[in-house]
């Protein structure tokens, strides 16, 4: 239906797949922060190289990731040109009517694009190599200290995994209801905006009714199967922190150190 690579899981064997979801989550979190340290060519090249290495290690084909990036190309281009046209500083490179392009703006725009790109690639890599179940398990585990201050961490993780599980079911249902109402003469694709808004009611009401019915059924089934919250619960999935996870943390620390060094030394 949608050509989105983001959010899809590709089950495969690779060193990145085998990493503990916690170390992957921490790495992505750290990465998103340290990306903002990069304000030089050297630093940006380091970031790109890091991503490239990550993709290679994950054994996911580069074209596959590029195909996914195509869908957000518009956003990237938009940010690029917005920055290009509306920042200033440095030598004036080009002047066309009201458009003035300065050297600094050009460099900054390129950096911003690289920043967005690497953040997206790294988060995509996380979801491509980690099953939704692992991600929720990892999150729950990482956030578990917050349980002490009565934050419903377990419930939140369960909610997340159930909604992920029901996405395909609800998509199928939506398609069916669209078809059923279209067969009764409802028109979702043409006519005035007002008519289209009106046509959405016969779609949304049944969808909500069915979602509530499912929620009710599911709650009952969960209770029948002995679900009573987090207390006394054991886990099938055991998160094991291996040496490779520690190595991953070291790599992230090194990456941060390099970026800091590059930044303070002010080179390039």
């Amino acid at each position: 239906m949608f050509n989105l690579v983001i959010g899809q899981y590709v089950p495969m064997e690779s060193r990145v797949h085998r990493l503990d979801p916690r170390s992957k989550l921490i790495s992505v979190f750290l990465f998103v922060i340290i990306v903002f340290l990069a304000n030089s060519w050297l630093a940006n090249i380091v970031l790109l190289l890091f991503c490239y290495a990550g993709i290679l290690e994950s054994r996911i084909s580069l074209p596959f990731i590029f195909r996914g990036l195509r869908s957000i190309l518009v956003i990237i281009l938009f940010t690029f040109f917005l920055n290009l046209f509306f920042s200033s500083g440095g030598r004036l490179l080009l002047s066309l009517g009201w458009i003035h392009i300065y050297q600094n703006a050009l460099i900054q725009s390129v950096f911003i694009v690289i920043r967005i790109l690497v953040i997206i690639v790294v988060t995509t890599l996380l979801t491509l190599t980690t099953s939704p179940m692992e991600i929720t398990d990892g999150m729950e585990n990482l956030l578990s200290p917050f349980k002490k201050i009565k934050l419903p961490v377990h419930e939140f993780a369960l909610m997340m995994s159930i909604s992920l599980r029901f996405i395909p079911t609800l998509l199928e249902e939506t398609e069916k209801i669209i078809k059923a109402q279209a067969a009764r003469g409802s028109d979702f694709t043409s006519g005035s905006l007002k008519n289209r808004m009106k046509a959405i009611v016969p779609l949304l009401v049944p969808l909500f009714v069915s979602a509530f019915k499912r929620a009710e059924d599911l709650a009952m089934a969960m209770e029948a199967r002995g679900y009573h919250g987090d207390t006394g619960r054991t886990r099938l999935h055991k998160l094991v922190w291996n040496r490779r996870d520690t190595v991953m943390m070291m790599i992230m620390a090194l990456l941060a150190a390099i970026l800091i060094l590059v930044r303070v030394s002010g080179c390039w």
Binding site: S131, R165, R214, A221
Partner: peptide
């Protein structure tokens, strides 16, 4: 143990 009518609405796990 109880098996309900709708196969979809009692499947909790992702796999």
């Amino acid at each position: 143990g109880m098996v309900f009518q709708n196969p979809d609405n009692q499947f909790v796990g992702a796999t």
